[in-house]
Nucleic acid binder design. Structure first.
Lengths: 238, 238
DNA sequence: ATTTGCCTCCATCATTTGATGGATTCCTAT
DNA sequence: ATAGGAATCCATCAAATGATGGAGGCAAAT
């Protein structure tokens, strides 16, 4: 069910077809699967839920996507593709601008994008924080695009060797965004916000929280007590 | 299965007993349930997995805790109790100190505590980001202790009326910590860290990221473009 | 020794769930 | 018109899963 293309990236043939024709049954099922898996996670989702969301029989689902785990892997691959494309787009927008501006634009762009596709945040967090009972052959190369972001944020002098501290910073930033997207159903009622107010507040809080750390670091404005602002070199880098 | 005590807090009789005698079968089951539910989530966990972890029959589990959803609610209540107690302890430690110091101590304390009890972070994130297919009568009062933290961090002038922006900041901070705890299995191999190195790095990154925002805000060091550092008043507060 | 109450396990159920075979329908090329 | 293939659904299965009844065991009280 899974192959590797010329660039060594994982490829699922059925996924290619679904992306080529968004009206195809494959694409409809994939879209429904993204939604339901994103809401309930792998074990919380039944193939019947997905089939019923599309309005088809489960056997049709299996016909197009194989078994449940295959479909789930296709979904994960699919959302990572979307995310990677968006990151590339954002990178091209912010390229060359000063750091604070770069961060603010990136936060606005990524927040809007993810609020439009909340299942991306949901599924990524599910993968980070939960275990599944089946072993997945899937190994999305998170480290790689985390390093890419670190480079584009100018967090590292040596472009080929992104320090661990920089990658951790990127993880923290990405997670902070995902949290507010994924947690909307929980946080928004708790805060008494309407949706658009919530989105605006998320952007503001993220900027409030994330920008100062990097900007003051760059300016060297930190207080004397904070001299250890970067982490000592990691024992090994892979 | 659930009652309310004199202070209006939810109470499960069986949970009281389990806490009173940590060697009891009730306590053993609760502990195993925390672990397994924390790893696999509600739907990813089977009662047989928990029973087998304890080394007992599933009927014994049901005898002590009722059905699966009851046990899950007891677990959620239990970890929230632990978390609340720790927060109270931390509050008493940092009381009266300057802001930056308060934050650093709180981050160190909470990080150590949660790395010792990762299922707390796991379960809290599961509740924030995932849906279950059963309706829960459980309504842990997250807003309340979020407001408590905001007060103890001195994020609000009016102690009775914690602004929404302050509560969002607290959410962002708490989530940032939980993320690195829950995501250890995913992030640590990716970064090539040993466990103790990872923990140390998490603390450093959290301080790097979180402290400057609040300290520079307090000092009024922010650049002119950032005058809107607080969010407009919420439409309604509950 | 017997009773009593608590605890545990074995055997068993009913339902849910992932999965498939095979019949049927629909479309297209000939 | 029809042969062939693709797509869909119905019926059904086997395994997993949540749940329970009842027998047995054990310790303390009588």
């Amino acid at each position: 069910m899974m192959e590797a293309n010329a660039r060594g990236l994982l490829v699922i043939p059925a996924l290619q077809k679904a992306r080529k024709d968004p009206d195809s049954m494959k694409a409809k099922i994939l879209s429904a699967a993204r939604k339901i898996f994103g809401q309930y996670g792998f074990h919380g989702t039944t193939t019947r839920m997905i089939a019923s969301e599309v309005g088809i029989d489960i056997s049709t689902l299996h016909y197009h996507w194989g078994d449940k785990a295959d479909l789930y892997e296709a979904v994960v691959l699919d959302i990572h593709d979307d995310l990677r494309n968006k990151l590339i787009e954002v990178e091209s927008i912010i390229h060359g601008r000063p750091l604070a501006e770069r961060m603010k634009i990136a936060i606005d762009e990524m927040t809007d994008f993810l609020f439009d596709h909340p299942e991306i945040s949901n599924l990524i967090l599910f993968r980070y924080f939960g275990k599944t009972r089946h072993k997945s052959a899937l190994d999305i190369h998170v480290p790689e695009y985390v390093s890419d972001i670190a480079r584009s944020m100018d967090l590292c002098t040596d472009k080929r060797n992104v320090p661990v501290s920089a990658r951790m910073k990127v993880l923290a930033i990405m997670n902070a965004i995902h949290n507010f997207i994924s947690g909307e159903d929980f946080f928004r009622p708790m805060l008494g916000f309407e949706r658009d107010e919530y989105i605006a507040s998320v952007k503001e809080i993220l900027k409030f929280l994330l920008v100062p750390a990097f900007v003051t670091e760059k300016l060297g404005v930190r207080s004397q007590k904070d001299e250890r602002s970067t982490i000592s070199q990691p024992p090994r880098l892979r």
